[in-house]
Design a protein around this nucleic acid. Structure first.
Lengths: 295, 295
DNA sequence: AGTAAAAACGTTCAAATCGTGCAATTTATG
DNA sequence: CATAAATTGCACGATTTGAACGTTTTTACT
């Protein structure tokens, strides 16, 4: 992927004239930096941000390092989930990348991509695995591919700045399912958080230590699988007491049935990534206003 | 003594050409001092001033945040390992990216990067974790960062073509350490293999199934940790019998002490990635010649 | 200290980009 | 429909950039 684009490159990728790109750069519609000599340079994240916020077609995706065939107009969501699953099962990394980036450029919020595409795709893969029509290694390989693609989207996002509120999260010991927690990181970043995925299978002590060390405004815990409920509740208790008043504790995941949730204290339980996004935006706005009133 | 940068280093940190940096130095845009021999040296303060003034955001902002006391510049490999470790521990993703890509573009073979940079860095991180000077979450976060960076390198590699010999690999159940296996994938790809990392923590049955389904010319197994030796040997036996004559079984990793190795049958045991690379190249050449003689 | 490899020097030059003005096209409005 | 306003695309000389190349300095190693 190109890290920096010249106006000409972005012009070729979008099919508009170089003059227009330059004008939009000057009007602030495209995030631009200047070389000391005065030449414009457009970070890839700025170009993608521009594409997501405009109706411009993408006629030469390869100029941005995206797979050829990536369009702005793409199949509807429900269809895309199926196509994505098929691409993953057939080990077609490029096709999967194309589908995700098409949606991302549309622009579809990442929370929606997670809830309506990636989630259903893996749910379906899980069913087919239980039914014996899919091998475990195919599911694992699909996870690897998706994880890598999510990192590519992460690279295309506006990088967080110091003034963004901090957030950390991951999964606890015994839970190896990192994908959901990584999706949370991306969704939070899209909502203006300085979010950091710490890892999966984390001992609770180290997560508590991370909370104390980094004092984030938010901490998310993705729970896909609970081996021992008592063990989990004990772990969660430690986490809960380690998070002070300043840290919102957000939980979610298949592993949390109602009975379990009732024994937990949290700031929010999110059924979907879209819920999470709403909550995160509200919380961020609240922090921003208190910070403003303090000035 | 203040840290000094060469024009090349600043060029790599900012993503512009070395020529431009030199020109800007001469125009006074960047505060520069000269060595007795006439080489430009840019003090940290000058570089920061330049970056602030020109709003020329860094590809690698932390490139300039080097800890004091490292007087050497972009120096030999062992030093790079140390710098890489420091960047990882301090959660400086950009700095870590710069170090790895600088080496990769040099070009340093990926096997060497793995053996001399990434390996030692995590060995050192492990020691510091055992000694209690580093938290677990810092190690995990370092793993996440490195894993993502390796994927970025993967994107920069020549994509495999159908005619390349196939290879699959991963780690078995109980072994969550994916990094080494991912490195193997990259090294094999660099050597012209169509290598695919299937995942970590793989049940042996599914790995055997993958062997039968894909009929690769090579299968690698990374073993960082063995919980039960008998269990492992049993698993390995299954794998060994699933791999026919056409598949070379390659093993490696800290977890394989001599006693264990003696009870295993394999095509190659690789102490280092460099060994692996040599073996893979030899094997590929052998396959190419038999294929040629068949035509 | 001596040597060979690596890195940086200064210079040159083609290609790319700059800013600007203007014509062509689209959109809004009476 | 006619007119004004706004947007888009092109042209042009001046400036900037990045790559090449032979020479000199620095570094790594014996």
């Amino acid at each position: 992927m190109e890290l920096r684009l010249t106006p000409k490159q972005l012009a070729q990728a979008t099919g508009v004239s170089e003059s227009s790109i330059k004008r939009w750069c000057d009007l602030g519609e495209i995030a631009t930096i200047r070389t000391p000599g005065g030449h414009r340079r457009i970070p890839l994240s700025g170009a993608i941000e521009f594409l997501r916020g405009s109706e411009h077609e993408l006629i030469a995706p390869e100029a941005l390092g995206l797979p050829a065939g990536t369009r702005r107009r793409s199949p509807p969501l429900d269809n895309a989930a199926e196509l994505f699953r098929i691409a993953l099962e057939a080990n077609q990394e490029d096709r999967a990348r194309q589908i995700l980036f098409e949606l991302y450029l549309k622009p579809t919020p990442l929370a929606t991509i997670g809830d309506r595409i990636i989630g259903p795709a893996f749910q379906s893969i899980g069913h087919r695995w239980e039914a014996g029509t899919l091998e475990v290694f195919q599911e694992r390989r699909a996870l690897e591919i998706t994880r890598n693609l999510l990192h590519e989207i992460r690279l295309a996002q506006r990088p967080p700045v110091r003034s963004d509120p901090g957030a950390i999260g991951g999964t606890l010991s015994g839970d190896n399912y990192a994908l959901a927690a990584i999706l949370v990181e991306l969704v939070l970043r899209e909502s203006g958080w300085r979010a950091e995925f710490l890892g999966s299978n984390l001992p609770v002590q180290t997560m508590a230590m991370a909370l104390r060390a980094e004092q984030p405004k938010l901490c998310w815990l993705s729970v896909s699988h609970v081996e021992s409920e008592t063990q989990f509740l004990s772990d969660y208790g430690q986490l809960s007491s380690a998070s002070g008043d300043q840290t919102a504790l957000v939980v979610g995941g298949r592993g949390l049935h109602g009975r379990l949730r009732q024994a937990m204290r949290f700031s929010a339980y999110c059924e979907t990534l879209e819920h999470l996004e709403t909550f995160a935006k509200t919380l961020k706005a609240a922090h921003a206003s208190t910070a403003a009133s303090r000035d």
